[in-house]
Design a binder for these strands. Sequence first.
DNA 1: CGAAAATTTGACATGACTCAACTGGAGTGG
DNA 2: CCACTCCAGTTGAGTCATGTCAAATTTTCG
Lengths: 190, 190
Amino acid sequence: MSIVDQMIKGEDFTPSEIRFIESKFKTVSFKKGDVILKAGDQTTHQYYVHDGCLRTFFIDYSGKEHTLQFAVKDWWISDYTAFFDQENAILTIECLEEAILYKVFRKDLELIYKEIPKVETYFRKKLEKAFSSFQNRILSNLANPAKARYLDFITTYPDIEAKIKNYHIASYLGITTESLSRIRKELVNH
Amino acid sequence: MSIVDQMIKGEDFTPSEIRFIESKFKTVSFKKGDVILKAGDQTTHQYYVHDGCLRTFFIDYSGKEHTLQFAVKDWWISDYTAFFDQENAILTIECLEEAILYKVFRKDLELIYKEIPKVETYFRKKLEKAFSSFQNRILSNLANPAKARYLDFITTYPDIEAKIKNYHIASYLGITTESLSRIRKELVNH
DNA sequence: CGAAAATTTGACATGACTCAACTGGAGTGG
DNA sequence: CCACTCCAGTTGAGTCATGTCAAATTTTCG
């Protein structure tokens, strides 16, 4: 299976299309703790996770970190706000577990879209899903207490939970590690 | 200026393209208090706001309403999660101020995308912006206390603030009307 | 094993919520 | 034009969830 078939599922490509797309992607690998992108840097890449685990986070005025998302095998990750608007990153991308990524430049992705429109459609639909999941995250933050959001997270993403620390989950849920610890205690004692 | 030029700015279309696009849109109008879409209904439309003011909100398990977004002149609105995934609505769309909308079916929009690819590109870029703004909303909810989020809202969207009630703002910020009232009091007393 | 990192616990502070009452303005009808 | 009602917004008192800070405990890993 080619890199392209892995990344862009359910679409048929001619060998020359595959060559064209693959020529625009570069494989990179990172070790745990590596910073792939730092807030303030220029963001020109989007990454496909072949393997490993990453997160994007935001550092607020008081220095606290807030996790926006995690990415494991088969997810795409970037600071999309910066990637789309071609501005400097506000997020940091950090490697949480040894990772192999395929990266592509914004400009090259646009080139691919132009040459092979069904790739644009494919990514548009990906973006629609991502948009939906952000919508649901906003609603869940508004509607549900921390305990429910925690349960949601671990049942929706058991694969991610397995790879990350509790303090990462806390920073994703918007609570402190202490609060998460107390929630977990409550859950154990029914 | 045609409806199309209004909705899809910065793109040039041939007269026949304009006719084709316009044939897929229908003008509808609503009065204050009208419900355009109800949670549970099928969502097949996306709306462009020619004029007026609307909001989408979610009703949680306890019956509380949580406002996801507002839309005024020149905004697009729908229950996108349902619109994209072709599932039943989880949001309700309510008219807050007499509105004139242009609506389009999901299927017809896909048709337009196929016929006129630059429309797909245009909407893909719109979606990128919307995605970014949801990202920023999530980060702001995680990072900022309610007072800062309120100030953010009224400075970013003074046009919306002018048309809505404070309890709508509260439900957008994720706080009660009482808390918003206290925040506003603090702000007056410096 | 030992040090560093992660998690848990306790005591206390605080921001936001709930519920109930009150204020003030807009609109209605006698 | 006043009395009444309705709605939005405000205020007060008490409660609760979550935060902070410090310390203890457990886990991880070189």
